[in-house]
């Protein structure tokens, strides 16, 4: 049955999500082309100075991409479900509701993780070509919260979308914006390297998942559902 759910979500998202992947690849290609060009024109010494002494992060173009990728996937997946309350069709399938939601979210998480691993892999290989191991690992650590923001944006969109009451939806949007802020506090290299930061980064998506279930629960019991 999980196959059937993945099939449904794949049909729903394939074209636009392919576009998101292509944009991600183009973005990385552009960053590396620009980096190579800078090395050629400004020289290694200058760029090493910028990176090491001035702590500049050279892949900032990537900063909001994972968030947008997560958000767009959420929109593609869940907007058709909430329009005309089509989610009722999914919830009526002969499975437990919690499992139905789990399968739907799993598709999104797996898709995003594959995309982010691919982009991180390219980033790792590309950066390794130019920089020392320590700088590359610092760079990966810098992008980690951004990739987490992608997952979180995905969950939080579902959290807001499934909420049945409009006023509450607005509260959810504000709460989501607040939680997402934590991922973008700074792009200082490896600013989130402390364990406590990493734990917070892991906790926020977990909060996101829990909140999706909460919204679905509220939808399911028909909280203030006079409009449907």
């Amino acid at each position: 049955m999980i196959k059937a759910f993945f099939y449904k979500e794949w049909i729903k998202t394939r074209k636009y999500f392919a576009l998101v992947v292509i944009i991600g690849l183009i973005l990385e290609a552009y960053m590396f082309l620009k980096l190579g060009r800078s090395f050629r024109f400004a020289g290694y010494e200058h760029l090493w100075d910028v990176v090491i002494n001035k702590n500049q992060f050279l892949f900032s173009y990537l900063k909001y991409y994972p968030f947008w990728a997560g958000l767009i996937l959420g929109i593609l997946q869940f907007l058709p479900e909430i329009s005309n309350f089509r989610i009722k069709l999914s919830l009526h399938l002969p499975l437990k509701e919690t499992r139905i939601i789990f399968y739907m979210l799993s598709y999104g998480v797996i898709s995003l993780v594959i995309l982010f691993v691919l982009l991180s892999g390219i980033l790792f290989l590309g950066a390794s070509h130019f920089f020392a191991k320590e700088i590359v690992s610092n760079y990966l650590l810098t992008t980690l919260p951004w990739f987490f923001s992608g997952l979180c944006g995905y969950f939080l969109f579902a959290f807001c979308a499934f909420e049945p009451v409009w006023k509450r939806k607005l509260v959810n949007i504000c709460l989501s914006a607040f939680l997402l802020y934590f991922f973008f506090i700074t792009d200082f290299p490896a600013a989130y390297e402390k364990l406590s930061s990493i734990i917070i980064l892991c906790i926020i998506p977990l909060i996101g998942i829990t909140m999706v279930y909460y919204s679905i629960y509220r939808f399911k019991i028909g909280v203030q559902a006079s409009y449907r």
Binding site: M1, A4, Y7, K8, K12, P80, R86, L89, P94
Partner: peptide, 22 residues
Amino acid sequence: LEGHIQYPFFDIVQIEKFYASF
């Protein structure tokens, strides 16, 4: 559902394949 709501992104073969699994 009211209004014959179904999944609009499927074609008639895909939707049959989806539901048949359940």
